[in-house]
Design a binder for these strands. Sequence first.
DNA 1: TTGTAAGCGTTATCAG
DNA 2: CTGATAACGCTTACAA
Lengths: 346, 346
Amino acid sequence: MSMESERLTVLPPTPRRPGVTSADVARLAGVSRSTVSHILNGQVTRFSEETVERVREAVAQLAYVPSAAGRSLVLGRSDLVVLAVPNTTLTNVQDIIEAIAADLDDVGYSAVVHFDRGGGPAGNLSRLRHLVETLRPAGLVDLGSLSPADLDALEEQGCPVLSPRPRNVHGVDEGNFAIARAQAEHLIERGFPELAYAYLDDRRDDPFGRMRATVVADVCAEAGLPEPARISVPLRAADAQTAVCDLLRTRGRPVGIACSNDEVAVAVTFAALALRAAVPGDVGVVGVGGGSVGQLVEPRLSTVTFDVRTSVSSIRQAIRQALGGSQEPAVNDFDDTFSVLQGATT
Amino acid sequence: MSMESERLTVLPPTPRRPGVTSADVARLAGVSRSTVSHILNGQVTRFSEETVERVREAVAQLAYVPSAAGRSLVLGRSDLVVLAVPNTTLTNVQDIIEAIAADLDDVGYSAVVHFDRGGGPAGNLSRLRHLVETLRPAGLVDLGSLSPADLDALEEQGCPVLSPRPRNVHGVDEGNFAIARAQAEHLIERGFPELAYAYLDDRRDDPFGRMRATVVADVCAEAGLPEPARISVPLRAADAQTAVCDLLRTRGRPVGIACSNDEVAVAVTFAALALRAAVPGDVGVVGVGGGSVGQLVEPRLSTVTFDVRTSVSSIRQAIRQALGGSQEPAVNDFDDTFSVLQGATT
DNA sequence: TTGTAAGCGTTATCAG
DNA sequence: CTGATAACGCTTACAA
């Protein structure tokens, strides 16, 4: 039984710290709590203009903010959306997360981040399910961490998946497929008789890299080129040189190298140059990302550009549709999302 | 979300999920709900071995997970921690967020991300306060988005700040101070008679950049050097050349340029080279970040390295101490966090 | 048009 | 040792 009410009636809206509740608003507005709730939830038309105004005023004066816990409890669902981020070398993760968080914010939801960690897919899935079970989020956005089966399980658990289900092309999602294919075809088109795929040498698992390497291999097979070599490139100049040197020794020149991302591509490019290999004469390099750095250095990097906004737009669509209510036309030209930006390395 | 719009009203048709509750566990274990709660909250010793076992078994069998909403409601605070991310060009944001999320996860909390957006500091603070008010998070981690006054206000609001309060040095936090000072002193030490500061030309506000430029100016004044010029560098080769060209025209050579980050530094370096300026003869460049890219290109970048793990460790400390309970020794050698990595651009 | 009352799932208090 | 019971803040039939 706290005695909070003994506070003097100060002039400015003095919000009491232990939390303003809808009961406070109701009292101040001279209505019941249900009226407050109704009005705040948009049932405005059903009430007299004056009542609505009084409630609004009280809300403003007390700086009342509904408790998420109370809402969630009665609704059976929170205003949170879980963002599942794969533990991999994804380009522009920050921008993607930020864009999605902004979209969610626009419709009144908040993003809870869930990163994959050590412990393998099973452990990560179990952590995620636990999170979903306890938070009862309004939805889940998957950035590539989950398999279709996982997503199904989550939906079964009562958690709508807001990210688009990638249509799989032989076990590779369409985005990675498009990227790798663009890289490989570009290199072949530029006349390289043999290709290689350069992974980022990283402690983390890189499923995307594996997928893309597979696609590159497929394209080579189609074109009658030999099986592409695969190298792992650390992001340190000396080590990258070692990796590239090994490749050039074991395989012939010229070789066109498709890289996991632009940083790897920069590493490969400068490693090749340091080894006195001609770029793009002996060694062709194509990255992916189109981020600024590759375009700032000399030689300018050839890369597959990747438009964050476009790639996020389908997620935005789903969010708006599922959580916002507004129905915007969904025009998503997926092929336009990826295109080759020719630099000086091919 | 703009403060006035209550978009949550249009709710999707979400069927209430049944969900396993503590009542189910209690029933299966043949005890009461309060017993379940007590046991699950660590009051194990007060119960008979057998009861504890039965409850544990029932929990496992039903895959029971406590509802965050219920907990939050009665506890007055949730198991969430808000992560306030500044809308600026921060290095390694992704890694930082990931590391913090992992730390939180270890002690049973989840991270809700809050990015600064357009609308100015006031708008962002107001959004953040709204979030804190509705979520009642267990704490807040600030990555640089908030002023000390803001942090005070949030704590007043009942939300513990888990990130270390930067000790301010003339309005600049110690991290930025150390970085900028290291850059400036290094350039002066390398013999540049005049300095300049290169911002990233970005749509977003860059308070860090401004702070650092101020510090660089201070160091120049101390050393008797003229007031450093300030340039804004877009991350496109041609535009960067324009910016650097302007600088070289209006100010003399040689000039040492401290850059907002390594990307800007790369842009400046290659712009200078393209303008046929000697690096580091005419133009010295020092970045900050120490990320891989600057060390992969030729010439290798001089930069102030910035150890993510060290910089995050103090936050981890605070999290563990405030939320975890374990008391690990806190040894944080802040001076070691930043140091100059000499490349070929100075 | 507005109010009443019944939960939602959890934890804390206190009585047995 | 264990179990009723009372909050916590909110939404929503249903009643007036």
